Amino acid sequence: MHPQVHQSKPGLCPICGMDLVKQAGHPTPAGSEATSGADLTLTAQQVTLGNIHTQVIGTSPSELSAPTVLTGTITADALQTESVSSRVAGRIEHLYVRQTGQLINRGAPLFSVYSEQLQSLQQEYLLALAQSREQGGAYRQFAEATSQKLRLLGLTSGQLRQLAARGRPNPVVTYYSPTTGTVQTLDVVQGQYVTEGSPLVTLTNLATVWVEAQLYPQDVDKLPIGKNVTVQVAGGPAPIKAKSSF
């Protein structure tokens, strides 16, 4: 309130009795203490965004190195993920998988489909098989070619043997899981009509997962391929040792 009042140390204004405020650009005299009620606290992310660098005077470089903490997310390993799609057009008669998160073993049934295309090919295969038994020759090759078509449409060797033993087409064909994994996505419901190539189920083996961390460009050199890292999951047990791979 009275800027004409100057003093070499903290004190009270002789006119109004208010605390004197330190003038910018003037050092605090030796033996006196400067107080401030506007302390600023920054998080590690704010320090990085502000490109602020600090150094403790008198400390050796080895004591200055601190671990870099990154924020990341756990994701599925894309190399262990497999999508199961419909090989033919038809109607899903029975769906053995009803929810995501369900663990499916390799060879377990996934769904059964009714398809006129499969019925026609099964009938062709049985006719060619019967004629090859009677006459052989070209009919045997035709039967083999038809069985190969059925294999490409997802039928197993066991299903072909059962078809030959049964002697008549099976109106509903069951498809089995090609791998062991957890259901990540389920894009079909029981009774739904599907087209050829329609995605039905996505399976992922979660025995190995990825941790994708957010890294600033200037810190890329600090995390070379093969570097040992420690992963701490929120609410999880002890930290997990790992290596950067990509």
Score class of each variant (00 low, 15 high):
T28F: 00
Y139D: 11
I74V: 15
A24D: 00
M18G: 14
F246I: 03
L160V: 13
Q141K: 11
Q131M: 14
Q55M: 04
V194E: 02
S244H: 04
T202W: 07
K243C: 02
S86R: 05
T156M: 00
K149T: 13
T43N: 13
D19A: 14
Q131N: 14
L95I: 08
G72V: 06
E196Q: 15
V47A: 15
Y114V: 14
E116R: 10
Q46H: 05
V173K: 04
T81Q: 12
A130H: 09
S83H: 06
T230V: 12
G25F: 00
S62Y: 08
N205M: 05
T41F: 15
Q122H: 10
P67A: 11
G158R: 07
N105H: 12
M1Q: 08
T68D: 03
E93F: 04
T48V: 15
L203E: 10
Q46S: 03
Q119S: 08
D221V: 07
Q232M: 06
Q141Y: 06
S132I: 10
P171K: 11
R91T: 09
F246P: 06
L121V: 02
L127A: 06
A24Q: 00
V209L: 04
R133P: 05
G11S: 03
V56S: 10
G50W: 04
G17W: 08
S62K: 15
L103H: 13
F111L: 13
T71L: 10
V233D: 03
T100Y: 05
G31N: 07
Q122T: 11
T28W: 00
K149S: 15
S198W: 03
Y114M: 11
T59C: 03
Q192K: 09
D219I: 12
L20E: 02
V209R: 02
V69K: 08
Q148R: 11
L153G: 12
L163Y: 04
V183S: 02
Q45E: 15
L118S: 06
S65M: 13
L186T: 01
A30N: 06
V172I: 15
T68H: 06
G236F: 02
A128L: 07
L103E: 12
R91S: 01
Q117C: 04
G107K: 02
S245R: 08
T35P: 02
G101C: 06
T68P: 01
I240N: 07
P199D: 05
A145V: 01
L126G: 06
A34T: 09
D39C: 04
V5A: 00
P178C: 07
V189C: 03
E144Y: 11
Y216M: 10
L129S: 07
T28M: 01
A89N: 08
G37P: 05
F246H: 15
V188A: 05
A164L: 06
N170M: 13
